[in-house]
Computed example of a mutant assay.
Amino acid sequence: MIELAFAKDTNGLLPAVVQDYRTGEVLMLAYINQLAWEKTLETGKAHYWSRSRNSLWLKGETSGHVQLIKEILVDCDQDTVLYKVEQLGGAACHTGYRSCFYRKVTGDALTVHEQERVFDPTAVYGAK
């Protein structure tokens, strides 16, 4: 098993930058712990640690928008990973956009940047 530096963070979490393996588009940033790392390596599907739910999370478990791992890069300090993925279903963001980085700063506001929703999050996750 490849050892990452989970002990560097008091919560045992490391950032995972997620990128489309074909285009290089940054899709999201999430966090992994040892369990998420092991499940990702074991299954070839991206698993993360949900800080809000305090639980293991298989990306796409509810929405069907799974991330298949194509390549994993590890930084020099072994405390950040880059997942290059095939994004199934077209959307990485729980808000329904392809990328979590769908807004840009325009003056003193955030505006949607060159993206349309792939799915309606209320229909997928229910009302919030």
Rank of each mutant, 00 (worst) to 15 (best):
I32Q: 04
N54M: 13
Y83G: 00
Y48N: 01
E114K: 10
T106G: 11
K104W: 10
Q67M: 15
K84M: 09
G64E: 01
H47Q: 09
C100K: 03
V118H: 00
L88D: 09
W49F: 14
S52C: 05
C100Y: 01
S55K: 15
P15N: 00
R22T: 13
K39S: 09
D75P: 06
V112A: 00
R98A: 07
E86W: 03
H47D: 05
C100Q: 01
L110D: 00
Y83T: 00
D75W: 08
L56M: 12
K45P: 11
Y83N: 04
K59Q: 06
D108F: 11
G60T: 03
D75K: 08
T23Y: 06
G64W: 07
T23K: 02
T62V: 14
L29H: 09
K70M: 11
C93R: 03
V26M: 13
S50C: 00
E61L: 06
K128V: 15
Y102M: 11
W37F: 12
V105G: 08
R98C: 06
D120P: 06
T43H: 00
T95C: 10
K84F: 05
V26C: 06
K128R: 15
T80W: 08
Y125H: 09
D77M: 10
M28A: 11
L88F: 03
E116W: 05
H65S: 13
Q87L: 14
L35T: 14
G96T: 04
V105M: 13
N54T: 13
Y48R: 04
K128A: 14
S55W: 04
T122G: 11
V118S: 00
Y21T: 07
Y31S: 03
G12V: 05
E86Y: 01
W49T: 09
A46N: 13
G89R: 00
D120K: 04
T95M: 14
S50L: 07
C93Y: 01
G60H: 07
F101E: 12
L29K: 01
S99G: 08
V66E: 13
V18F: 06
L35V: 15
T62F: 04
Y97H: 08
Y31W: 09
K45Y: 14
R22P: 08
L56I: 15
Y125K: 09
Y31I: 01
W49A: 02
L35P: 14
V74H: 05
I72M: 09
S50Y: 02
V118D: 02
L14M: 03
Q78E: 15
K39D: 08
F119Q: 05
D120T: 04
T95A: 13
L56S: 14
V118K: 01
G89F: 02
V74S: 11
L56Q: 13
T62Y: 02
L73H: 14
Y31Q: 06
T95S: 14
V17L: 14
K70D: 13
S55C: 14
G64N: 00
V85Q: 10
E71G: 08
F119A: 07
C93K: 00
